[in-house]
Simulated scan of single mutants.
Amino acid sequence: MLRFPFNRNKWDPKGKHCYVTGGSQGLGLSVALLLVKLGADVSIVARNEDKLRAAHAEMEKARQLPSQILRWYSYDLSECKSSEAALEAASEGHNGRCPDALLLCAGAAVPGFFVEEDETSMRKGMDNGYWVQAWSALVRAGAKRMVRENKAGKIVLVSSFLGYMSIMGYSSYAPAKHALRGLAETLRSEMLLYGISVHTFFPGTIYSPGYEAENKSKPKITLTIEETDGGQTPDKAAEGLLKGVQRGDFHISADLLGNIFRSSTRGATPRNHVFLDEIYSFIGWVILPIWRRSVDSTIKGHRQEHRSYLAEKGLLS
């Protein structure tokens, strides 16, 4: 009874063609496997062919129906032409028809101090965090193809908890995730013209291979700040994402803290719940200033150690 509006139909992926980027590992693979178990035709895309083959083998084990079409494609999605070619290839396996749902899970983070970033790393941050999804959503094979085919499809972008706020260490990553939120807000409005629904997922820490990779460059102080973040497995995050998509939520959060930040920074975004969002917002009004002061205090306490680090790196005169 807390849902709003009350008459939303639950989306069923059974028999639909779902296109999943970043599908070779982590969240993308978990989303793909869950869709397979729900009876969908699934195409996964990533760069590493060995990981894609392994992921495809897992999909075959999860197959529910002999008629399900399960395929993998190796493409670099940070480039527009390559993203278009990937979706064209996936469409060819379905009589040239565009997928019914684009679930864009590809992305990567390389944390570090802003004073150590350069043009290359900042541009790469936007490529890996924004363009890797934006190209798939917008090129001729994405939203444009859905419009041309008059398909009332779904576009699901994966932002991050850092699309609502940010902390030190994510200067090359958080801007891309904020940009995805801006893109989603715009697409949600514009796609109403065509009956295409848009959703955005804002997960916190996901214990995936990507998380292990980003921790290699993550500043020590950032790791300290994140110690209280419980995190989720890829399977748990995928479950939260798909439940939100099935309900028709625009902004999707899969845990309590995410819902608090979502409700506290909602703006004109549609509510997910009539009453719960107000409760989340009130909790945020009380605890978020306390949390922010705690984070700021932790960072200030790290100043001397950080100056020593900068001196060792030759960044101080």
Rank of each mutant, 00 (worst) to 15 (best):
I206M: 13
V245W: 01
Y173R: 01
M191K: 01
E185L: 14
G195A: 06
P270A: 06
S264A: 15
N150T: 11
P175F: 00
R266E: 05
G244F: 01
V198F: 09
A184S: 09
S159C: 10
V132F: 03
R262E: 08
E214L: 12
K220V: 13
G240M: 01
Y173S: 00
G153Y: 03
G248V: 09
V198A: 12
G153R: 06
T233L: 02
Y194S: 15
I155T: 00
T228L: 07
R266K: 10
A268V: 13
A268P: 10
Y164N: 14
A237G: 03
A213R: 06
G258H: 03
G210F: 01
Y170D: 09
Y170W: 14
E227K: 15
E214I: 05
D229C: 10
L256V: 08
R140I: 00
V156M: 04
L242I: 11
G163N: 11
G169A: 13
Y164S: 14
L162A: 15
R262G: 08
S197N: 13
R262P: 04
L162K: 02
G244L: 08
S217W: 00
K243M: 02
E185D: 10
G258P: 07
E185M: 06
N215E: 12
L241C: 12
Q232A: 13
L257T: 12
A237L: 04
I196M: 06
T200F: 03
S208N: 12
A134F: 00
K243F: 03
V139C: 11
K154R: 13
H178M: 02
Q246F: 14
V132Q: 05
F201N: 07
R145I: 03
F261V: 11
P203D: 08
M146D: 01
L192W: 09
T222D: 07
N150M: 09
Y164K: 14
A213Y: 08
M191W: 15
R247T: 12
R247I: 10
S217I: 02
V198M: 08
A137F: 01
R148C: 11
I225Q: 08
G231N: 02
Y173M: 03
L257D: 09
E227S: 10
V147T: 10
N150L: 06
A268Y: 11
M165I: 15
P234V: 00
T224G: 07
T269C: 07
E190W: 01
A237T: 03
K154N: 10
Q133P: 07
R271S: 01
L256F: 13
R271I: 10
P175L: 00
Q232I: 08
K154I: 01
F250L: 11
Y207D: 13
A179P: 06
L223G: 13
F201Q: 06
I260M: 03
S197Q: 14
T233C: 09
F250M: 13
I196P: 08
F161I: 11
G153M: 06
Q232L: 15
L257M: 14
L192F: 10
R247G: 07
V198T: 15
E227W: 04
A268N: 08
V139I: 12
I252F: 10
P234G: 05
V139H: 03
M165T: 15
K151N: 09
Q133Y: 01
S217M: 05
L256S: 09
L242V: 03
S136G: 09
G230N: 05
L223C: 15
V132P: 01
E214N: 02
L257K: 12
A179S: 12
E212L: 12
T186A: 08
Q246T: 05
